[in-house]
């Protein structure tokens, strides 16, 4: 299988605060890979660097086996890699339909756009009902559907999702995960899913990476990660385990980081 996304040794800093340290991961064609970890682990920053809304300063990213050093944000979308950003980020004062149309901005083929919009409406009938409503009036779950639908309009090969479960009730989260599974089955889409909600993410993904403090701590198949005690420790704090400093890979003086971009 071809590697759709290869990220190697990416570093990133906000001013003087380094938030990513030599992060590497990869995703093969049709694979669902999840990156889990607590808030402030650097997951969001990582996706924003891949999608190039943050500059790539150190490291290497290949998409569909092509180097991306020289590409702009639009270039990455054209190459088939699209971001569904944290907190939905829909165009709140435009209609649902216009939001979807704009998702296809880089391809500019209205014929295929129409068909894809139909497809989005099939998957999310609720969006079809609200097609002419302003996106800002939608509920959180509906906005998340819209953000995913908008991303589908660029006919991506790789979809990066940043915390799609954020603020959603469990049923809604489960529905979103189900849709992601369908998308992969039908079109061989590669999905990179950044999640705090480890159970939902590992339930869907083939493989996962655990991040904390800007580093990848461990990786493995979803089953392996589910069984790994480190996951629970990283999430709920070392006090779950009375042994002091039980987090391997977290040196005491290493800053764990909050990311301006992860601020709501």
């Amino acid at each position: 299988m071809t590697k759709m996304l290869e990220v190697s040794k990416v570093n990133y800093s906000y001013g003087r605060a380094q938030v990513l340290y030599d992060v590497s991961f990869e995703a093969a064609e049709g694979e669902i890979v999840t990156i889990i970890g607590p808030n402030g682990a650097g997951k969001s920053t990582l996706l924003n660097v891949v999608a190039r809304s943050h500059k790539l300063r150190r490291g290497n990213i290949r998409i569909a086996e092509r180097g991306t050093e020289k590409l702009s944000q639009a270039g990455i979308v054209k190459l088939g890699c699209v971001l569904v950003p944290e907190g939905r980020q829909v165009f709140s004062s435009l209609t649902v339909h216009d939001n979807l149309v704009l998702g296809g901005y880089v391809s500019r083929r209205s014929g295929t756009a129409k068909a894809t919009i139909e497809r989005v409406f099939d998957i999310f009938p609720r969006l079809a009902e609200r097609s002419n409503q302003l996106a800002g009036t939608l509920s959180g779950g509906e906005q998340q559907m819209l953000a995913i639908g908008r991303a589908m309009l660029s006919r991506p090969k790789v979809m990066l999702l940043d915390e799609p479960s954020l603020g959603l009730a469990p049923q809604m989260t489960a529905r979103i995960m189900e849709v992601l599974g369908e998308l992969r089955r039908e079109s061989g889409l590669t999905i990179v899913l950044v999640e705090q909600n480890a159970h939902a993410a590992l339930g869907l993904a083939d493989r996962g990476y655990l991040m904390s403090g800007g580093r990848v701590l461990t990786s493995g198949t979803s089953a392996e990660l589910k069984a790994d005690k480190m996951v629970q420790q990283v999430y709920l704090g070392a006090s779950a385990d009375p042994a002091p400093d039980a987090n391997p890979g977290l040196a005491p003086e290493q800053p764990s980081t909050a990311l301006p971009s992860e601020a709501k």
Binding site: E142, P170, Q171, A174, R175, M177, H199, A200, V231, Y235
Partner: peptide
């Protein structure tokens, strides 16, 4: 940590 997905029934409509 989220609820294990097998314990939640996905619903079609929000």
């Amino acid at each position: 940590l989220g609820v294990p997905s097998d314990s939640v029934k996905a619903v079609d409509e929000p």
